[in-house]
Amino acid sequence: MNLPLAALLVVLVAVIAASVALAAFYWAVRRKQFSIRDLNEGAYSIFDNDEPVGKPQDLMFDDSRKQDKR
């Protein structure tokens, strides 16, 4: 079969892109990114002592009302 060079290139790029995606998924599984225990803790990873769970952020309007009344 005589495929034009452009078609070969497109197929090559597609295979590389798909391989990268599969490799990323495989890497993530090996690193236990999707294990149930880590998933439960992962959800909390955006919180810390400084911005802890249970402390809402960005309550500007609440504060503004208090200031407006002053």
Binding site: E41, G42, Y44, F47, D48, P52
Partner: peptide
């Protein structure tokens, strides 16, 4: 939960 996050 906060302690867990900290340890994580």
């Amino acid at each position: 939960a906060t302690e867990r996050a900290k340890a994580f």
